[in-house]
Amino acid sequence: MHRETFETVAFRAGYLLLLAFMLFPLFVIVATSFSASGQIAFPPKGLSLTWYTEFLDSTRWLRAFTNSIVIGVGTAILATGLGVAGAFGQEIDDGSLGSLVTPLVLVPLLIPPVILGITLLMYFNEVGLRGSYLSIILAHTLWAMPLVYFVMRSVFSRFDWQQLDAAHDLGAGPLQSFRHVVLPNVRHGIFVGTLLAFIISLQEFVMAMFLSTPATETIPVLAWTEIRQALDPLVSVVSTFLILFSLGALALAVLATNLEWVSKQLS
């Protein structure tokens, strides 16, 4: 075996082992969700759908599941709008104002989530929004919007801006030129950014813990509350649904574009 071939095989084997090591906890979570006993144990002692039935019969878990979806959709819409607008403005404005966009976008990512949660709790309590869907959506947007912004910066960097100049020369207004010239060329990037924002919101825990109430608590918050009392397979069931939603969002991104395009846009 040639040295190059051996190195290639060794690299791929190491990569697969590392990938398996990282994915194994997910396999454990899914497997324990089918446990027939009342405790989390791997391998499970018998298989059963009892905990899935209990989840579907639980009003509190279903409400938390619905809350997570509503907040995730709201976050995805708001973060996408702000992220696309910020990236687009950065590309068309070379002045000092445009240069401030990126540092401002980075600020929420540099602040510990506990500090953000406490600060937002005090602020939203003062303005009467504490415990509302809007407060959690705004908090999640602080983390989701920067990801959308940087994805769109990468997408816009590959866009031929001469097309936009040509549209303006032909008399198209700003909104018309963006809708008919820019949007068709970057819609795949917008779609990927939207899904990323949704996934970020779906799994965010710290800020939601500070801002939510029993009526608006999300799945991660409720899961944390239940884990503190008892560790049963119901938590694994909920985690399995979150995993499936994340994989479903990834599958949608792949179907809407393709793996090669996604890798190019995020590279």
Rank of each mutant, 00 (worst) to 15 (best):
H2S: 15
E4C: 04
E4W: 15
E4N: 14
F6M: 15
E7C: 06
F11N: 08
F11Q: 06
L17C: 09
L18Y: 04
L19E: 07
F21Q: 02
P25Y: 04
A31H: 01
I40K: 05
I40M: 14
A41M: 02
P43E: 14
P44K: 11
P44V: 14
L47I: 03
L49I: 09
T53D: 01
E54T: 00
S58Q: 04
F65W: 05
S68L: 11
V70H: 07
G72F: 01
V73Q: 10
A76I: 06
I77L: 09
G81H: 08
G83E: 01
D93E: 13
G95M: 07
T102M: 02
L106A: 08
L110R: 07
P112K: 08
V114S: 09
L120P: 00
L120C: 05
M122E: 07
V127E: 10
R130T: 11
G131V: 11
Y133V: 06
L134H: 09
I136P: 03
W143S: 09
A144E: 10
P146L: 09
S157T: 04
S157Q: 06
F159T: 06
W161Y: 11
Q162P: 00
Q163T: 07
D165A: 15
A166P: 01
H168S: 12
D169V: 14
L170W: 11
P174F: 13
L175K: 11
S177W: 09
S177T: 10
R179M: 11
V182R: 04
N185S: 06
N185L: 13
N185I: 03
V186M: 05
V186R: 01
V192Y: 03
A197F: 04
F198L: 05
I199M: 02
S201Y: 00
Q203D: 12
F210M: 05
F210T: 00
T213V: 11
A215N: 02
E217I: 07
P220V: 09
V221P: 03
V221S: 02
T225I: 14
E226M: 13
A230R: 10
S236P: 07
V237G: 03
V238D: 03
S239M: 08
T240R: 02
L244A: 12
F245Q: 02
L255M: 13
E260V: 13
